[in-house]
Design a protein around this nucleic acid. Structure first.
Lengths: 158, 158
DNA sequence: GCAAATCATCAGTGCCACTGACAATCAGTC
DNA sequence: GACTGATTGTCAGTGGCACTGATGATTTGC
């Protein structure tokens, strides 16, 4: 692969993300979970017990996706579903002891991976990078104004 | 969605990428192409005509994926396949006139999108951000050493 | 001239995310 | 208390995307 695209933001973001998630996957491999599953454990390890929908919202996934995610974790014995006594439509999902241990070790490895990933940067650079990334990840809904339609600069091709 | 995951590198990269690609998609929508297709046009618009495999390598996608990509662009009349006279196993893929026009306008919008996306940053920040991103996107193959296995720190859970 | 490599293609698979439908349950209203 | 509408979890189906593996055509090396 050559240099043509390597200054495109989309390309860079995609491949940075790819690299990082692969590093994460490798680090978690021997724990028997992947990054998504670890993320689910993270959100479930809250003060208040969460329903599947709560967890899905926290994680930013669809509630139908959360079904499979919890299925997987339950099959591994990391979490348990139980009916909420307050609202019997809800599944309260809680970590098992095994789940808590896996979470702790997973988090340790996750932090190790982040550290390794940013190891080439100075602390100042790393900090700035994360700050910028937060900003860029945040304005999800903020509609980017489209100057071509807004200013009439849009060109018809052919 | 709350704050639990929003300092995780993986989460931030994923959502920054998502935001950007959505902005790009919106900007290109009325052109009838998406970001991937624009990227293909970019790599195909080279001095030397490229085969499908060349383009796939350039773009970092599988050769089987490139088949469909070229199919789409050919259906839109943006590129043309023709057999290479030098090596008749190869499909030379070239931009049509329509393809060139679409590429030019797409590139204009792409740059606009990048500018908008980085608009909140100072020029120095934007520059640093891109530089860092290039570094992180680059070391694709560089195997992350796994301290837990390398140093014997690995813990068994349960 | 023959075996091995290369290229484009296609079918199949897997992952991920979504939509739409359904049953169970809850909340509000009359 | 019964009815209506909303909420939650589940499942089936769909679509995008990327890959593997197989096939056929062609080229290359010996």
């Amino acid at each position: 692969m050559a240099e043509l695209l390597t200054s495109r933001l989309g390309y860079l973001l995609k491949h940075a993300q790819l690299n990082f998630s692969q590093s994460g996957a490798r680090a978690l491999e021997s724990l028997g979970i992947n990054g998504r599953q670890l993320a689910v454990l993270v959100v479930l390890d809250a003060a208040e017990p969460l329903s599947q929908l709560d967890a899905a919202n926290e994680l930013g996934v669809d509630r139908t996706t959360m079904v499979a995610l919890v299925d997987e974790l339950e099959a591994k014995g990391l979490v348990e579903r139980r009916r909420s006594p307050d609202d019997r439509r809800k599944n309260i999902v809680e970590l098992t002891a095994h789940g808590k241990n896996t979470l702790a070790e997973g988090e340790r490895r996750h932090q190790e991976t982040e550290k390794t990933f940013l190891a080439d940067l100075t602390p100042i650079e790393a900090d700035l990078f994360v700050r910028i990334l937060k900003k860029l990840a945040a304005d999800a809904e903020a509609p980017v104004d489209q100057p071509e339609t807004a200013t009439g600069k849009e060109k018809k091709v052919d």
